[in-house]
Computed example of a mutant assay.
Amino acid sequence: MDGRGRLLVVTAVDAERDALAAEAEERFDIAVVGVGPASAAAATARLLATASTPYRAVISAGIGGGFAGLVEVGGLALASSSIAADLGAEAPDRFLPLDELGFGTARYEADAGLVDLLGPALPEAVVGPVLTVSTTTGSAAGTAALRGRHPDAVAEGMEGFGVATAAAQAGVPFGELRSISNVVGPRDRAGWRIREALAVLADAGRVLGKLEA
């Protein structure tokens, strides 16, 4: 990641944008790109293509689920890569990812320079693969299947791979941040901590603002 241009941070929903904007002090651009990888990819691609000055990097930021024992509720995940965890084909005995089918890639690596910059600035963040899913995991069986395929994944979200796809095609460095509102597993809304996760996201926005100052 070079020092030219502004940083673009994209979120799925307004609440995430507002949390980041509270601390950003207009030091970077923030945009809502919608929920899910398709909407995120399309909107991010448009933002990158129509920018008057090329962006130095794009970060997909928002709340997400954390895998128990790796990153807990109230924690922060910094993606080393973004993986389209449910993009592929089912076979009788296992799931076949897009790469194995020969139709492209289901993984984008986060920009190493961006990870090296954000890691020390966010020392509480757990660095590891972040899964992108079109349907959030809500059962023990689904969680076990994901962990079996991606044992080193630290978190789950719905937009990262879409943003990464747009960034890769535009030649722009990509990163992903997820503040953790819930444990990936059986759906339990009573256990969600969205307000706390948004506060963690706001803290991350403060750090990003300092990096851009």
Rank of each mutant, 00 (worst) to 15 (best):
residue 111 D to E: 15
residue 112 A to R: 15
residue 86 D to E: 02
residue 67 F to C: 13
residue 154 V to G: 03
residue 93 D to S: 12
residue 41 A to R: 07
residue 167 A to Y: 02
residue 69 G to M: 08
residue 33 V to W: 07
residue 122 L to C: 08
residue 179 S to W: 12
residue 176 E to T: 06
residue 138 G to H: 06
residue 167 A to H: 06
residue 104 G to F: 00
residue 184 V to C: 01
residue 194 I to P: 07
residue 105 T to E: 11
residue 115 V to Q: 12
residue 13 V to R: 05
residue 162 G to R: 02
residue 201 L to N: 09
residue 52 S to Q: 09
residue 49 A to V: 07
residue 208 L to T: 03
residue 52 S to C: 01
residue 165 T to K: 08
residue 54 P to M: 13
residue 150 H to V: 07
residue 12 A to G: 07
residue 145 A to T: 15
residue 123 P to W: 05
residue 39 S to N: 07
residue 103 F to H: 06
residue 18 D to E: 15
residue 197 A to M: 03
residue 1 M to A: 15
residue 159 E to F: 06
residue 150 H to T: 10
residue 36 G to Q: 00
residue 193 R to N: 14
residue 51 A to T: 04
residue 88 G to Y: 10
residue 19 A to F: 10
residue 120 P to Q: 06
residue 7 L to T: 03
residue 166 A to R: 04
residue 116 D to Y: 01
residue 108 Y to I: 04
residue 198 L to K: 15
residue 57 A to I: 05
residue 36 G to D: 01
residue 16 E to V: 14
residue 125 A to M: 04
residue 140 A to P: 10
residue 85 A to S: 14
residue 31 A to S: 15
residue 156 E to K: 10
residue 166 A to K: 02
residue 102 G to F: 01
residue 14 D to Y: 08
residue 93 D to K: 09
residue 179 S to R: 12
residue 105 T to M: 06
residue 24 A to R: 08
residue 113 G to C: 10
residue 45 A to R: 04
residue 24 A to H: 03
residue 13 V to A: 11
residue 124 E to W: 07
residue 4 R to K: 15
residue 107 R to W: 01
residue 73 V to S: 04
residue 137 T to H: 01
residue 164 A to K: 03
residue 99 D to R: 08
residue 68 A to M: 10
residue 171 G to I: 04
residue 3 G to W: 11
residue 133 V to R: 08
residue 37 P to F: 07
residue 124 E to A: 15
residue 23 E to Q: 14
residue 11 T to K: 13
residue 61 A to Q: 12
residue 57 A to S: 05
residue 49 A to S: 15
residue 99 D to H: 07
residue 208 L to N: 03
residue 107 R to D: 10
residue 193 R to P: 05
residue 89 A to L: 13
residue 5 G to D: 07
residue 160 G to L: 02
residue 213 A to S: 13
residue 120 P to I: 10
residue 147 R to F: 01
residue 22 A to G: 14
residue 141 A to S: 13
residue 204 A to R: 12
residue 98 L to F: 00
residue 128 G to S: 09
residue 36 G to S: 00
residue 183 V to Q: 06
residue 53 T to L: 05
residue 178 R to A: 08
residue 191 G to K: 05
residue 169 Q to C: 02
residue 32 V to A: 14
residue 101 L to H: 05
residue 38 A to G: 03
residue 14 D to V: 15
residue 1 M to I: 13
residue 192 W to Q: 06
residue 47 L to P: 12
residue 211 L to W: 05
residue 4 R to D: 14
residue 47 L to K: 12
residue 190 A to T: 12
residue 36 G to M: 00
residue 109 E to P: 01
residue 11 T to F: 14
residue 192 W to P: 06
residue 196 E to K: 13
residue 148 G to M: 05
residue 82 S to T: 08
residue 205 G to S: 09
residue 67 F to K: 14
residue 153 A to I: 09
residue 212 E to A: 09
residue 151 P to K: 12
residue 68 A to L: 15
residue 171 G to M: 04
residue 44 T to H: 09
residue 201 L to D: 07
residue 67 F to I: 15
residue 16 E to H: 14
residue 66 G to A: 11
residue 43 A to T: 11
residue 95 F to P: 11
residue 161 F to P: 10
residue 82 S to Y: 01
residue 138 G to C: 04
residue 148 G to Q: 05
residue 9 V to T: 03
residue 210 K to W: 00
residue 54 P to S: 12
residue 194 I to M: 14
